[in-house]
Design a protein around this nucleic acid. Structure first.
Length: 577
DNA sequence: GCCGTTTTCGGCCCGACTGTTTTCAGTCG
């Protein structure tokens, strides 16, 4: 049982309680509990197995602790099952629609008998919502828009959730004796933002025994297909996992075939056709003779191509680049020397400055920028001018005690509706590192949004543009702006584009990383960590950067501390000139 | 439901915005 699954039980309880208009604080406790579990650096199941007291965890009290034990044992809990009897099975799905909350979901159910997204869509399309109390034409349109966003991402899970699932499956497979090797393929291996299902390639000494071993995996809920070559299952979480068996002689060809993308495979297969060869999941064949298949390198090599990293296999020019010997040397996790966007408990973070510094050091980093929110983000208790000054002084005190670690005093300042920054420029000018971000008015028309961003970029005090598109994958659309004009302005003013590594953001998206690189811009990969464990989200940002063809030299935070300091100094001199 | 405690009860973040409404409920962050 994974943390995300325990958390999902609490989330569902919270959703149902919300529809029932229960005590808001009780609901929040369930949501806090869900997040506490989701954010744990280790599995709650392991903590329990090790005899740890869950009530020591923040947000987990007597009740939630007991429920976690119950969930780990039974997969659910009494409270949820009882609540489920009181509401239609899919009513809580309505809460996933942006702009639709519990109150109006209840109205939809009570007045129109709507019990799921399908019913909601139908009613909205028929114009039945606009006349309900508390609804109107705009609301109806917004709901239709929200439904579209959900459809686009239906059934997909985040790369982070997928990673967790893969790790869990891997722990199980390690205990299946007849399995001698396994590897992931598909969109997971390509590090896509979201994953529809998992493809796992297996080499086994005895396939029948291997299948038996796989089916002993606890979360397997349904066996969708079972044959000689594969076993296809659905886990309790709804995730579908395809296990396919291959011999060592075909394993590399199988990895290529199942890693895809389909478009990349077609592009590679053209090379085979040209030579009258045949490439399939079992190997590269000349007539009936297999001339390659053991490894991917071997197969690519037969075409006189270097091995192409999975992240590039989207048919976005990688095969041509490989032919010309122009493949990028992609940035790697070990290249990253620091994190330039993190929060502390001064605003909505959950750790102190010192704790974040310690976390950064433990990850081998040489520097860190503390970038708490500005005053406009009232919910995060954002910093006003006076508190910013005090906070920066605190950061500098900690920085002064650090010998071989560079601690930067920064801020994530809001870009207000009209493009002004949320704090006076003189207050920002004294900081080491200023990230400017949009947190409001996401729906401005493109022209206004472009002007808004351009104004912030031209302010002369901004070093980086935080999560440039402001999207939340699967729930909030990216903001609209003239990308070329904004990127041009960034280059002109030396403003770096952030690749926000949070799995729900992954923003810049990969294709814009590539675009920005082609336009000669540098980027910075940041976690936006609100707690120490979130510093580990860096790997998802690196996945995006790699999918965006970025090399070490394209990413600012691969610089050494002294090189970074130098770069910032020259930038600031230029900025104020 | 959690937490801290002036310890078994009271507080828990709350201001801004949208789209309703005709003074404010619902939603968001």
């Amino acid at each position: 049982m994974e943390n995300s699954e325990v958390a999902a039980v609490f989330e569902e309880i919270a959703d149902i309680l919300e529809i029932q208009d229960e005590n808001a604080f009780r609901i929040r406790s369930y949501r806090n509990g869900a997040r506490a579990i989701r954010d744990l650096p280790e599995r709650v199941a392991d903590l329990v197995a090790a005899g740890k007291v869950l009530m020591d965890l923040p947000g987990i009290g007597k009740s939630l602790s007991e429920k976690i034990h119950e969930i780990l044992e039974t997969g659910t809990c009494r409270t949820l099952e009882d609540l489920k009897k009181k509401v239609p099975a899919h009513l809580t799905d309505l809460l996933d629609v942006k702009g639709l909350g519990a109150k109006r979901a209840k109205v939809l159910h009570d007045k129109l008998g709507i019990a799921d997204l399908e019913g909601l869509k139908q009613a909205a399309e028929e114009g039945k919502l606009r006349d309900l109390p508390g609804f109107g034409g705009k609301t109806e349109q917004n709901i239709l828009k929200g439904l579209k966003t959900i459809e686009a991402e239906a059934g997909r899970i985040s790369i982070q959730d997928a990673s967790e699932q893969v790790a869990a499956i891997g722990r199980h497979l390690a205990g299946v004796k007849s399995i001698t090797r396994w590897e992931t393929a598909g969109s997971f291996r390509r590090r896509r933002e979201t994953i529809g299902d998992l493809d796992i390639l297996v080499e086994a000494s005895d396939r029948e025994k291997a299948i038996e071993g796989i089916l002993e995996y606890g979360p397997v809920a349904d066996v969708l297909a079972r044959g000689e070559e594969k076993v296809f299952v659905r886990l309790a979480s709804g995730l579908e996992v395809d296990f396919r068996f291959f011999d060592a002689a075909a394993f590399g060809a199988a990895q290529m075939y199942f890693t895809g993308s389909k478009a990349h495979n077609i592009a590679v297969r053209k090379h085979a056709q040209r030579r009258k060869w045949k490439l399939n999941e079992y190997g590269l064949f000349r007539g009936k003779r297999r001339i390659a298949g053991k490894t991917e390198e071997e197969v690519y090599g037969k075409f006189k191509l270097p091995w192409i990293p999975p992240e590039l296999r989207e048919d976005r020019g990688e095969v041509e680049a490989a032919e010309k010997g122009n493949l990028p040397t992609l940035v790697e996790h070990k290249d990253i020397k620091g994190d330039l966007h993190v929060h502390t408990d001064a605003t909505d973070g959950h750790a102190t400055i010192e704790e974040m510094v310690q976390g950064a050091k433990e990850r081998g980093y040489r520097y860190l920028a503390i970038t708490d929110h500005s005053q406009a983000v009232t919910v995060a208790h954002g910093l006003d001018e006076r508190r910013l000054k005090e906070h920066a002084e605190r950061i500098r005190e900690v920085a002064a005690r650090e010998k071989k670690f560079l601690l930067l005093a920064g801020i994530e300042v809001d870009i207000l509706k009209g493009g002004r920054l949320d704090l006076p420029e003189k207050a920002l000018a004294g900081l080491d590192w200023v990230v400017a971000s949009v947190h409001s008015y996401f729906d401005l028309p493109e022209a206004k949004m472009t002007e808004r961003l351009l104004a912030a970029i031209a302010s002369g005090v901004v070093h980086g543009l935080g999560h440039p598109f402001g999207r939340h994958i699967g729930s909030r659309d990216p903001i609209q702006f003239d990308v070329d004009r904004v990127f041009d302005a960034c280059r002109e003013h030396g403003v770096l584009l952030e690749i926000n590594a949070h799995p729900v953001r992954l923003d810049l998206p990969d294709i814009y990383c590539k675009r920005a690189k082609e336009m000669g811009l540098a980027m910075v990969i940041s976690t936006d960590a609100h707690r120490v464990s979130e510093l580990d989200l860096m790997e998802y940002g690196i996945g995006v950067a790699r999918r965006g063809w970025l090399e070490e030299g394209d990413v600012l935070n691969t610089l050494s501390a002294s090189a970074l300091r130098k770069r910032l100094r020259s930038r600031d001199e230029k900025g104020s000139a």
